[in-house]
Design a protein around this nucleic acid. Sequence first.
DNA 1: TTTGGAATGGCAATCGATTGCCTGAATTTA
DNA 2: TAAATTCAGGCAATCGATTGCCATTCCAAA
Lengths: 343, 343
Amino acid sequence: MKTKKRITIYDIAEKLNITASSVSRALNNSNHVNEATKNLVLKTAAELNYKRNVLASNLRMGKTKTIGVVVPRINQNFFSNVIAGIEDATYQKGYNLIICQSNESRDKEIKCINTLMNQHVDCIVISVSVESDDHTHLKNVIDQGVQLIQFDRVAEELETLKVINDNEQASMEAVTHLIEQGYKRIALLEGPQNLNIFRQRKIGYLNALEKFNLPVINELVIENAWTKELGAAATRKLLSLPEPPDAIFASTSDFSALGVLDVAHAMHIKVPSELGILGYANEPFTEITTPSITTIDQFSVNMGKTIANLYFEEMENHEVAVTPKVISIKPQLIIRASTRKKK
Amino acid sequence: MKTKKRITIYDIAEKLNITASSVSRALNNSNHVNEATKNLVLKTAAELNYKRNVLASNLRMGKTKTIGVVVPRINQNFFSNVIAGIEDATYQKGYNLIICQSNESRDKEIKCINTLMNQHVDCIVISVSVESDDHTHLKNVIDQGVQLIQFDRVAEELETLKVINDNEQASMEAVTHLIEQGYKRIALLEGPQNLNIFRQRKIGYLNALEKFNLPVINELVIENAWTKELGAAATRKLLSLPEPPDAIFASTSDFSALGVLDVAHAMHIKVPSELGILGYANEPFTEITTPSITTIDQFSVNMGKTIANLYFEEMENHEVAVTPKVISIKPQLIIRASTRKKK
DNA sequence: TTTGGAATGGCAATCGATTGCCTGAATTTA
DNA sequence: TAAATTCAGGCAATCGATTGCCATTCCAAA
């Protein structure tokens, strides 16, 4: 059995004794066709089970109703949630999603962008990889007239639409919470400082200390501790100091906080009484560790939806070239057992 | 500053005083052009920063080097891992991925399939939603000559390429492990039986019992307990039986197992000594609960890669229409504290 | 009655890349 | 030397949908 030939507008045209132009106009609800003709075309199209050839349409129109998404890793809870949110919102508008992962590599990120550009996506949504300091490839996107939306990890100097968390504020609140619980020597596990999010979280930390007149102790600030293993290593180092910290803010991720917790367990240090632990991202597991981990929720699915809606708004106001919009979502501190020192 | 016009093969042709045909052939490495011309074209293309217009090419060729993926939920660990695996493997071959989520709804699944078909994807990879009993929409895909690959949750009666886990075997091993640990009254939390995976896991459970001459106790088999909440509810019910189980196999998911654990904690029942708990899927959190949960690893990322490679193989052997290949991946039992009864 | 416009439809070009077929030239074989 | 190949390039159609421009009809306003 041969694959049936697809129905085209020409088939409809032939059947109705009109031209493809009219069919096209009818299908696109143009007011350049007679109402009667329009209905006839619509009816016939339905009968013949006509499906517009998207490829042809894309070529002609130069747009694809497709959004490209580039994230460091698809299978990281935060990102997959954002993607789920984007999918949810874009699907309803008949948009498609092409997904790429940069694997935290600059090279791959560039290749992803190129692929997406070649696919003529209408918009690129990206959270930059840790490696990418130079943002020429993103500038190119803008120069080629493709809408660029950055989220979470953003290149701040680029004037694009951005959807971010208020990391500084969240971090500040988190540390404030620790101080209010009575912790006095609060260590910070910080992430790669070339990423805005980690810089901001550090600022929040510093601001909180300053607000409460606590000194910044350099040896309590550990660089690049953004995996479980690195978090664990940092913790071992911190806890073997002459004056160890009484709380650790793993500003990089909950995984890092998990590393902290593991080491604390191994060293028989009581959490939260002897050591407070605070993570970032509200990974599902933070709720079920013993003790459960205080963390910060980023409303990731919502973030995805916000991104999608931002794009659609921008499409509509298309003429009004306002200054690039930045939407900041306020994350929420989720207080759990790991920092509940006061009774 | 206007957006520069894109370079086309006609621009190259004009510059070199040849026709677009030759340029096209040169770019496609056809042996229908002179070697010298070919090099000249390649050189010029590079100079002018020519990029093939994929849309035009797609239209002409009728294929898109794009694979559509339909999963119930993108932000579910197993699926996002599979997707990550697929992305990894397809990316290298220059293929793109369009991702849809069915949200476990049959309607949405059908719509996803339609969208993907309209986008002329070369292949559709799907793990069916729990709702979809009728598979007409999948048959259509095949009839239209689009490669269909099912994974994990598959419609067994459809003769398509399949990449699955050996759920029966895994389940059997799991229950065997429980029995060997000395558990005697093993309860089963089963998933919707219209999904093959849950049917198979149940069979594995039954086989293991039979092998060891243990009776099947109907009141220990609980239907549809495939979320944390349902798992918890089932557990409450089970533990309040006159003769409660001494082990619970949450064959549906680790989340369900987590519900079991929660209830056990709440009821001060000791795990694993008084109650053994076994989950499914090796979710990251199973490692860090107290006690850690014994579970089954599905090699999800690998599964994704396998899917991609299966497609590419099939492409190459394209002529040889063998009986549809089924690749079964043997999952691995990960034994952890929650079932370690024997010392 | 004439003119102006609105409504409706057709024509043909266009979006770029691809490819079957044809032609003329160069090379090989008989 | 003549016939047969091979090589390399050009021509034009094709993949379908879209749209600017032109043509016709019909009705209303002058």
